[in-house]
Design a protein around this nucleic acid. Structure first.
Length: 849
DNA sequence: GCGGATCAC
DNA sequence: TATGGTGATCCGC
């Protein structure tokens, strides 16, 4: 959202000068700059807010005075020395310049306001803002002519524009639209980095490579008038609602959409131009980055009726600046060429760069620095006046450098209480989603990714469908507990946790749903032959997904086929992606190595030789921490598996290879370059992740599991007719279950149960809720057959929360809902705020959990 | 380590 | 009537 920079520019003298009112057209309604300033000052003056603003301003002025005094004391000799040092660093930076990535920054235009206008035609021609009388989060372009801006209080906006309509925010709606947009973005970069509801970075390098060989029909989109908007896949019809072409130009009447007609090299094939009702033409987008981004924006507009602006550049810093250049509904590209970058940077005001705020701008202005060229010229002086982090940042900016991969940072979570609490939180949110969708599932899966990037998935399937937070958490908690206990006394050091509910029954299954353990056991008892027979399956049967035949089968049968199904994915993984297979195998070796050395290496600086499992480069004698950082960087670099060419990471690695004597500086360089991206990751780090659930097994492990499952199946099979369950020694963490017929009888007699005692663990359960009790019993029964999956995760965050997968030729759709969260840092700041009562927040801007 | 300042959305 | 809330990082004390 374009709010922040505006926010600081709404008040006072020099700030007012910066108000972007160039769109103020003579002779049209709206206010001129002077009038706007006057009204704002009248409304502001004398207020406490204004007083505080003045106070802050004085403080900044003092800082500037101090800085100027410092500057006056600098000798020419000091300056010369600094110049040498800085230039040496600049040279290193120059050598590390990486132009091989294509980064795209997508920014939805006046997002909230645009959504409101889209959904309420009455707002179309009016100046509107989203927010309240206290604070606005955004305004449409009509309102901006009156000086109504994001982060302006509504009451002031009303004085500027009395006819302004202030619409209260509707975050659920914005989130839904945002999700639609993100679904499109994921097609171009599954690892795209969402900064907020309306902003995201993509690395389309890989997509571009693949796209070069794409046939035309894969880049072809149909435009057609109609009502359905949901089909935006290539080669299929994209229906264009009547409002499409009416709303967008009205919203952005200053800048007509540049998408139409998509000129060379994208072509428009008009097929039925004579009949406007049946107007249908197709657009073919080219293979260049520019064309890709046009396609993205085209699809966004078709799907949501909203326009987006975009920037294309070799790094995130530049891409972000670019997306602002042709706003609204435009795009701008900096070609991956050093000269092109320098030309762009030359006159760029530093304030345009993300990270340079009001105060920094003012301080640098005092040194005569406004543009990036000036910033570069003063680099030696800046290195003497500012902290190292600051002048490094300045140097990066002034050289047009920025992050070339969309790395994410997360804090570690290792306290069990926190983990349980996060788990509970996720279950709560997941339950809400399920209830919204009206879904109930039988399988709960938790996903844990540790600090070494190892991903474990633990799943448990219960007999009755569940959907409440309590039910889900009851299962998830047990799964988590098992993992925590397994590592005891060492803590689980997590980077990511996910909870998934799957196994949604189809209509037929719903009818057969057993609501109690009695029913479950009875059902098992009644169909022993089915269970036995189905064990001899055809190959095809074995590879059916569990749900497709679950209603016909026993519990263990289902479990077994689930594993088969997982194993099938393993084969896919092997054939499709040898690289990731290698990676996961290397990871196992690495894991072993690490666990062998963990205790010593964690507490000392003991160094050893590691080979990176991602880039396969030997890392020389480095500490585990440094090595982890390297692996971290490699994993975050999107192009590693495909491309041995330079990515930021491989770049760092190659630098290391060249200068073996000094590994750490290379890492720190890598880190520094990543500074911006890391700054930007904040939201994603703590925010929700929506995730496409694609679990890929570790082949080695899956094999073991499968062998085990085969062995077990026989036991199950032979024992089932006489006893319901007699499972012994299933797996690690197994529990031995032996349920005799009399147990069932006793359970039957007990119904309805008052004091609920689990027949498996013999422990009295506190709950009086039968469903919860069933859940518990199921957990106990399940303990022996927990799936162990190794997930080579490619989509850590920002994936669509709901994924619908077609399950083969049945045409049925299997749905999975997952919630994933990265543990975020709880700062003092937020800790103190958390004490506040939990009344519903009405925030106005773009962040969400 | 803490709190204030800065920045972002 | 009335100028947000949250999170992250940096920096000085």
């Amino acid at each position: 959202m374009d709010s922040t920079k505006e926010k600081n520019e709404n008040y006072k003298d020099d700030l007012l000068l910066r108000m972007g009112l160039n769109d103020n057209k003579a002779g049209m309604e709206g206010l001129d700059k002077e009038k706007i300033n006057k009204i704002i000052m009248e409304a502001t003056k004398g207020s406490r807010f204004y007083g505080n603003e003045l106070k802050k301003e004085k403080q900044v002025n003092r800082r500037i005075e101090n800085m100027m005094q410092q500057k006056a004391q600098i000798t020419s000799q000091q300056l010369r020395k600094a110049q040498l040092q800085v230039d040496k660093f600049a040279m290193e930076l120059e050598q590390s310049r990486d132009l091989n990535n294509t980064i795209v920054h997508i920014d939805m235009d006046a997002f909230y306001a645009a959504v409101e206008m889209r959904d309420n035609p009455e707002l179309k021609d009016k100046p509107i803002a989203v927010g309240s009388m206290s604070m606005l989060s955004t305004s449409n372009y009509h309102a901006r002519r009156f000086g109504v801006r994001a982060a302006m209080p509504g009451f002031i906006a009303k004085r500027l524009c009395p006819q302004l309509l202030i619409v209260p925010p509707n975050f659920d709606k914005y989130r839904a639209v945002s999700r639609e947009v993100k679904e499109i973005l994921a097609d171009y970069d599954p690892n795209f980095l969402a900064m907020s509801l309306d902003e995201a970075y993509l690395n389309i390098t890989k997509h571009l490579q693949e796209r070069q060989n794409w046939p035309e029909d894969k880049r072809k989109y149909f435009i057609k008038t109609g009502s359905s908007l949901d089909n935006d896949k290539p080669g299929k019809e994209v229906k264009l609602g009547e409002r499409e072409r009416s709303i967008s130009p009205l919203l952005f009447e200053d800048t007509p959409p540049d998408l139409q007609p998509p000129g060379n090299p994208s072509q428009v094939n008009t097929e039925e131009q004579n009949n406007p009702q049946e107007f249908q033409n197709s657009v073919v987008f080219g293979t260049s980055a520019e064309e890709v981004v046009k396609e993205i924006r085209f699809r966004i507009e078709q799907k949501t009726t909203l326009t987006a602006s975009a920037g294309i550049a070799p790094n995130t810093m530049l891409a972000k600046v670019c997306s602002d250049k042709n706003k609204p509904n435009g795009q701008y590209q900096i070609l991956p060429d050093r000269q092109a970058v320098m030309d762009f940077i030359k006159d760029l005001p530093i304030r345009k760069v993300s990270g340079i705020g009001k105060v920094t701008e003012k301080m640098l202005k005092a040194l005569g620095i406004i543009t990036c060229t000036e910033l570069y010229q003063q680099r030696a002086l800046l290195s003497l006046l500012f902290s190292e982090t600051s002048w490094h940042q300045f140097l990066h900016i002034s050289m047009g450098l920025g992050s070339t991969h969309l790395a994410r940072t997360f804090s570690e979570m290792s306290k069990a209480e926190e983990q349980y609490s996060l788990c509970q939180e996720l279950c709560g949110e997941l339950a809400q989603d399920l209830q919204k969708e009206g879904l109930k599932g039988r399988t709960v899966t938790i996903k844990l990714k540790n600090v070494n990037f190892e991903v474990k998935t633990r799943a448990s399937t219960v007999s009755s469908v569940i959907s409440t937070a309590e039910e889900i958490f009851a299962i998830a908690k047990e799964l988590l507990r098992t993992e925590i206990d397994a590592d005891f006394p060492h803590p689980l050091r997590l980077r990511l946790m996910g909870v998934r509910v799957s196994g949604f029954p189809n209509e037929e299954e719903k009818k057969h749903q057993q609501r109690s353990i009695i029913g479950f056991l009875q059902a098992g008892n009644q169909t022993p032959s089915a269970t036995g027979c189905r064990l001899e399956k055809t190959e095809k049967d074995q590879f059916l997904k569990p749900l497709e035949m679950s209603h016909k089968k026993s519990f263990f049968d289902k479990k077994r086929s689930e594993r088969k199904w997982s194993h099938q994915d393993t084969f896919k993984c092997e054939t499709v992606d040898q690289k990731s297979l290698q990676t996961s195998q290397s990871f196992q070796v690495l894991k072993q190595k690490m666990s062998e050395n963990l205790e010593t290496s964690e507490n000392s600086d003991k160094c050893q030789i590691f080979t990176c499992p991602v880039c396969f480069r030997e890392q020389g004698s480095v500490s585990l921490e440094a090595f982890n950082k390297h692996v971290d960087a490699c994993l975050d670099a999107p192009s590693i598996s495909e491309n041995s060419e330079m990515s930021s990471c491989s770049h760092a690695s190659s630098t290391e290879v060249n200068k073996k004597e000094n590994v750490h500086p290379s890492f720190s360089l890598c880190e520094k370059q990543d500074y911006k991206a890391r700054q930007k990751n904040i939201e994603t780090t703590s925010g929700d992740c929506v995730e496409l659930v694609e679990t890929i097994d570790n082949p080695a492990k899956a094999e073991g599991v499968d062998a085990l499952s085969n062995k077990r199946s026989k036991e199950e099979c032979s024992s089932l007719p006489s006893k319901l369950f007699n499972v012994e020694h299933c797996h690690q963490n197994s529990c031995t279950v032996s349920l005799e017929d009399e147990d069932v009888e006793s359970l039957r007699r007990q119904e309805p149960v008052q004091a609920l005692v689990c027949p498996v663990c013999n422990l009295e359960q506190k709950t009086s809720d039968l469903t919860l009790f069933n859940v518990h019993v199921d957990i106990c029964l399940n303990k022996g057959i927990i799936q162990e999956l190794r997930n080579d995760e490619v989509n850590p965050v920002n994936q669509p929360k709901e994924s619908t997968k077609s399950t083969g030729n049945s045409g049925r759709v299997q749905k999975t809902i997952t919630k994933t969260k990265r543990p975020g840092l709880v700062t003092k700041h937020s800790a103190s705020k958390k004490v506040k009562p939990s009344n519903p927040r009405h925030t106005l801007d773009v962040f969400f959990k």
